[in-house]
Design a protein around this nucleic acid. Structure first.
Lengths: 361, 361
DNA sequence: TTGAAAGCGCTAACAA
DNA sequence: TTGTTAGCGCTTTCAA
């Protein structure tokens, strides 16, 4: 009770506590500021007196006032799609990337402002800067649509620092951190070829995501390198959801049964799993009747039966890198050219693709 | 280029644009403020003139200044554990809850500040309020430890609005939104009994989480209701990770083989899946040799083979409810008693527990 | 219904 | 090395 009224008093006289600290330390308020913000030059001795006084009185500077005076919000915005409805991306992806961003931002004294982009909301990223809610932002789950392009162009034009994660825009030089998806597909193809599979089907995601294009690209390139002909009709399109993988069951089953296809690469784990389940219902088993490779190496890939071979994308590191680069850029004085970081991926071999096809048809 | 310099100018004269709006509308800056903040009484006619002028000049008030003047951050803090390291909770859980919070907060004009709690950091939630980074906060993944209790007690003492999600503290009346875990276990037990299983083993999580205690409680109660004896040695403890479920393989296998146990309820899906995998390796199959029920109904439960019966917890709604209640509380003037909301859960029956045990030993 | 002016808690010149 | 002082862009009394 005592403490309660004590603190209520304090709250009522926010400003006074600052003055008290100054008095207790025998300095001016400006010096208190200098000590606590770390800026300016203060004698070690006085600095210590101020610190002690502040600790004794439990004084913590008001970040809101601080940021207002500095005209910096101290926030890093993270824009992300509304997850539950459009569950295309995996929760795994977001958790990992977000954690990476969060840890990095915290290390560097920034807070994270989470901004959910609504489905068809007119995107106005720039106003987040105008209102000074954020000093920079990282955009997740961006798609190549006219509205998105316009919003990004505006950001760039006004020189607001931002960074895209896992998405590039053809013809625009934006800051990007991405996994090397193209290399991922190549690894997958080479892996399958090594095990004797030669008739590979590719279950891709929609082309609004540059990742989809990159993966297809790597797929084609790896085939070309091995002089295996590329068949357009062996490219299927889903929407990154498990259901969309499941929906391809009939098509893929026919391809496998006719001997036209003996392996499938899916552009993410969810589609791979949907397809695997569908085919299993028809008695066609991954790892035995055909080989299956997913992408993302999400936590579910090792929960499957058989466990799913997948391309590990270092999502956590992607988040770290994006935040780190963006914060660098925000603290630099002179403008630097846009960065396009590609992080290496790695094929994790598991049972779904490991049976050697010695008698390839 | 033109636009670019134009905006650079604007940025240089942030304050001026406000004045220009005032001039264009033929009013004072104070009136501009009144109109844009919606407060105060303004004639409809002048209000319209101001709005038009603002739109024409592209004026958006500076939220940072606004919040500073109002002494409100406009942020709802969400405190959550660092995910990647301590991957006890599922990413599914956090994504769902977070989305619920995010949507609700946005509807009510609040922004979300994400705060990662580091593993053993001295918890000082109160200073988030003192620095005015947040006006209220929702705490996820809280555990019953002395440090946590102290931090929460401080929040309460200083009358900072906060809400716990999925965690209660014995002896403390904090605002809480939780799923009805106790009811969940009861559903699970009754379901198993109905299918003829009578020897049920319970794989629980650690007791620092009140959920663990609730679930055990419901388990015992349901057994008592059905007059099935409760066996202390049939309660196993994991840590909510898949591995910890896997680690119980030997123990559970022995219990099943000896006929002492014919069904298992796990306190979350991850442990259920770990256990399922371990037992499968020993040739003991869920849904055939024993029944298995998980909890959370995370997205993986339907990706398993066999699919996992699980208790669906409305995580998204939990998030909505927590945010909604907390925001109510923050806008109320008079103090209200703490709320303890329990949301209903639902058993989702799948293959892992559906084979009727007609010949129960 | 509106304008003028004070002040939110902090930083950062400028002086001393 | 430190104190004084003038803002940061907004809200909000108080008068008109």
């Amino acid at each position: 009770m005592y403490a309660c009224t004590f603190w209520r008093l304090l709250r009522g006289e926010e400003g006074l506590i600052r003055r008290k600290v100054a008095e207790l330390a025998g300095v001016s308020e400006a010096t208190v500021s200098r000590v606590l913000s770390g800026a300016g030059t203060v004698k070690d001795d006085t600095a210590k007196r101020v610190m002690d006084a502040a600790k004794q009185l439990g004084y913590v500077p008001n970040a809101l006032a601080q940021r207002f005076a500095l005209r910096k919000s101290g926030n890093l915005g993270v824009i992300l799609p509304l997850l539950p409805k459009v569950n295309l991306f995996s929760t795994f992806y977001f958790s990992e990337v977000l954690s990476g961003i969060g840890v990095t931002a915290k290390q560097r004294g920034y807070d994270l402002l989470l901004l959910f982009r609504e489905a068809d909301e007119a995107r106005d990223y720039a106003s987040l800067f105008r209102t000074q809610k954020i000093d920079g932002c990282i955009i997740l789950g961006s798609k190549d649509t006219p509205g998105e392009r316009a919003a990004l162009a505006e950001l760039k034009e006004r020189e607001h620092p931002f960074c895209l994660v896992n998405q590039r825009f053809e013809g625009e030089a934006y800051n990007t951190v991405d996994a090397d998806q193209k290399m991922g597909s190549r690894h997958a193809v080479r892996h399958l070829l090594r095990y004797g599979y030669r008739k590979i089907c590719f279950l891709n995601g929609p082309p609004e995501y540059s990742n989809s294009l990159d993966r297809l690209n790597g797929f084609q390139q790896a085939l070309a390198e091995a002089q295996v002909p590329f068949r357009e009709e062996h490219v299927l399109i889903g929407n990154y959801s498990r259901k969309s993988g499941y929906r391809q069951t009939e098509t893929v089953a026919a391809l496998i049964r006719s001997g036209e296809v003996d392996a499938v690469i899916a552009a993410n784990d969810r589609m791979a799993i949907g397809l695997m389940q569908g085919l299993k219902e028809l008695g066609i088993r991954a790892g035995e009747d055909f080989a299956l490779v997913g992408c993302d190496d999400s936590d579910v890939s090792s929960m499957m039966e058989p466990q799913l071979t997948s391309i590990r994308v270092p999502f956590y590191e992607v988040g770290c890198e994006a935040a780190s680069r963006l914060l660098d850029l925000m603290t630099e004085t002179e403008p630097s050219p846009p960065f396009e970081v590609k992080l290496p991926v790695k094929l994790i071999e598991r049972a779904s693709s490991k049976t050697t096809r010695s008698t390839a048809k």
